[in-house]
C-alpha cells in the first residue's frame, strides 16, 4: 500500500485531497515539522530533501514535489478525471500548480507563516510577514482572474483546484485573510466535496462551518 508522509494543513494536504479523490487505499505517516522531524536521520533516509509531502509507492520508490506527485496520481488514475487529456489544458494546469507552489507558497505563505525561518530577529518579523501577505494576496488576485466566473480553475475540476485549496485553507483558517469573492466561493465548493471532507478528517482538522 502506498504511503503519504505529511503534516496537517501544510501543502501535503493537496496530495491528500487528490488521493481521496482517486479512492486509492493508502497509509500515512505524520512528520512533525514543529519538532523538526523532517531533519531526523530516519526521515532523511526516506526523503533527503527533508520535505513533505513525500509519496512512497508500492515498489519502494519515492516521489517528491507536490506537482510531480499530483501529476503521477492524476495520470495513473485516469478514471478520476483529475487532469485534462489535451495538452493545452494540461499545461495550463501545471502553470497554476507551479505558481502556487513556487510563488504563493514558497515566496508568500512561507514568509507570512514562518518569518523565523528567514530571520531570528523578532524586529524583522512584521516586515517579513507583511511582504509575505502582499505576495499571497497578489497571487490570489491573479488566480481570481484565472477563475473568473467558472466553478473550477481550468473549467472542470482538476489537481489545480486541490492545490489552490491548500492556500485557501491556510489563508482563511490560519491567518484570517480576506480572499477575493470568487476564491472564497471556490473554497466553499471545495469544502463541499466528500474527498476534501475526508482529507480534513484524516488530518484531524475540523471542516470549517459557514
Amino acid at each position: 500500500m502506498p504511503k503519504l508522509y505529511y503534516w496537517p494543513a501544510t501543502c501535503s494536504i493537496t496530495v491528500r485531497v487528490i488521493l481521496e479523490e482517486t479512492g486509492l487505499s493508502y497509509e500515512d505517516e505524520a512528520v512533525d515539522l514543529g519538532a523538526k522531524k523532517q531533519q531526523s536521520p530516519e526521515f532523511l533516509k526516506v526523503n533527503p530533501k527533508a520535505k513533505v509531502p513525500a509519496y512512497l509507492r508500492d515498489d519502494g520508490s519515492l516521489i517528491t514535489e507536490v506537482p510531480a506527485i499530483a501529476l503521477w496520481l492524476a495520470l495513473t488514475n485516469p478514471d478520476a478525471n483529475l487532469l485534462a487529456s489535451d495538452y493545452e489544458t494540461r499545461v495550463r494546469t501545471l502553470e497554476i500548480f507551479d505558481y502556487i507552489a513556487g510563488t504563493i507558497h514558497m515566496q508568500g505563505a512561507a514568509r507570512a507563516w514562518r518569518p523565523g525561518s528567514f530571520s531570528e530577529t523578532e524586529a524583522a518579523h512584521d516586515a517579513i510577514r507583511a511582504r509575505g501577505k502582499d505576495i499571497v494576496m497578489r497571487g490570489l488576485d491573479i488566480l481570481s482572474q484565472t477563475l473568473g466566473d467558472k466553478d473550477w480553475l481550468t473549467g472542470s475540476y482538476s489537481i489545480a483546484d486541490a492545490s489552490l485549496f491548500f492556500i485557501e485553507y491556510w489563508a482563511r483558517e490560519k491567518v484570517g485573510y480576506q480572499m477575493p469573492a470568487n476564491i472564497e466561493a471556490h473554497y466553499h465548493r471545495m469544502l463541499g466535496r466528500p474527498a476534501v471532507q475526508r482529507a480534513l478528517a484524516r488530518e484531524g482538522l475540523v471542516v470549517p462551518a459557514f
Binding site: 530533501k49 520535505k51 516521489i63 517528491t64 514535489e65 507536490v66 506537482p67 510531480a68 501529476l71 501545471l94 507551479d98 507552489a101 513556487g102 507558497h105 514558497m106
Partner: peptide
Amino acid sequence: AQEAMAYCTAT
C-alpha cells in the same frame, strides 16, 4: 521531469 523542474524552480 516535473519533479526535477519543480525542485530547481520552487526550492
